[in-house]
Amino acid sequence: MENLDLISIIGPTAVGKTTVAAHLAAVLDGEILSADSRQVYRGMDLGTGKDYADYLVNGKSIPYHLIDIVDAGYKYSVFEFQNDFIKAYYDIKQRGRMPILCGGTGMYIDAVVKGYKLMKVPINDELRSELELLPEIDLEARLTALKSVHNHTDFDTRKRLIRAIEIELYQQEHQVEAMAYPQIKNIYFGITVDRNTRRKRITERLHTRLRAGMVEEVEALIKGGVPVETMLFYGLEYKFIAMYILDQITYDQMVEQLNVAIHQFAKRQTTWFRKMERDGNNIHLIDGMLPMEEKIAIILQKIG
């Protein structure tokens, strides 16, 4: 492990990534860097699955980073994540601890491990006005035609589609300045469970979080000043619960449609990670149903 800079624990939602990362951190004296595009927001807890208890291992609190770093209502970008990641990464390394990246947002993971050359993209009101006139199917076709790598969540809402097109066009029209970014020697571990188990976990977890107050969480965010349009932008739980609050769908419709959407999201995540493998990334797969001791033993053996 002498030359290893980063360990990445990845996989789709509901496979148990965080608990594996936390137990590994406890063994290696490590700290966790979250790679979740929505857990960056303060106040968005149940809807993003911030299971803080997962960071407590045998009475020891495992340090984590890149969670609760911006206010709900803000539209955080991959560019900002890349910069926030590298600051936290250097801090962990300088203190002699092991950085462990953990999450399921494929674009975020790729951006920091591969060192994407990103830039801050300004708002283009003229372009947005033009795109607002197009039907969603045309927006999807236009984004796909740009042939740049983009996050699957770019297709979740009209606003995401328009922003993704805006970013792609800006990057094509402007010279991307090289930014200082370290070459990170990383090893991937992908946590997997069979499809039926994952589906069962997703559905059970959804009902658990609804009972715990997920609708009330979204109501509180809206009452606190977060625009409904931004709730729709965040997608999944926030999108469908906001639609329910607006009386656009019934409670039962919200639960049913949200459940389907989360299953589809998990499938898109799995597709992304398979593409990573096709692109030459070696992902060591670990059966998520194994006892924790065995999962950690497999990782320790691989990293030497």
Results as ranks from 00 to 15, higher is better:
Arg209Tyr: 09
Pro182Asp: 02
Val228Asp: 10
Val27Gln: 12
Asp247Ser: 10
Arg205Asn: 15
Gly47Asn: 04
Met1Trp: 09
Arg97Asn: 08
Tyr108Thr: 07
Asn83Ala: 06
Arg205Met: 15
Ile187Trp: 06
Ala145Cys: 07
Ile191Pro: 02
Gly96Lys: 06
Gly47Met: 01
Gly115Glu: 03
Ala164Tyr: 01
Asp91Ile: 15
Pro63Phe: 03
Leu56Asn: 13
Thr192Glu: 14
Tyr234Asp: 03
Glu294Arg: 14
Glu173Ile: 08
Tyr251Ile: 04
Leu236Gly: 03
Trp272Pro: 12
Val113Gly: 07
Arg42Met: 08
Pro227Met: 05
Asn151Leu: 08
Asp279Arg: 12
Ala180Thr: 15
Gly59Trp: 08
Asn124Leu: 00
Asn196Pro: 09
Gly304Thr: 14
Ile92Cys: 05
Leu33Trp: 01
Leu24Cys: 04
Tyr251Ala: 09
Asp252Phe: 08
Gln269Asn: 04
Met1Ile: 12
Glu166Ile: 05
Lys147Asn: 08
Met214Cys: 10
Ile191Val: 04
Pro99Leu: 04
Leu290Gln: 00
Gly115Met: 09
Glu204Lys: 11
Leu66Ser: 05
Asp247His: 10
Gln183His: 13
Ala25Gly: 10
Ala72Lys: 03
Phe81Glu: 03
Tyr41Lys: 04
Lys50Val: 05
Ile86Ser: 01
Phe85Thr: 04
Val226Met: 01
Leu236Asp: 06
Gln94Asn: 15
Gly213Thr: 01
Tyr234Gln: 01
Ile303Tyr: 10
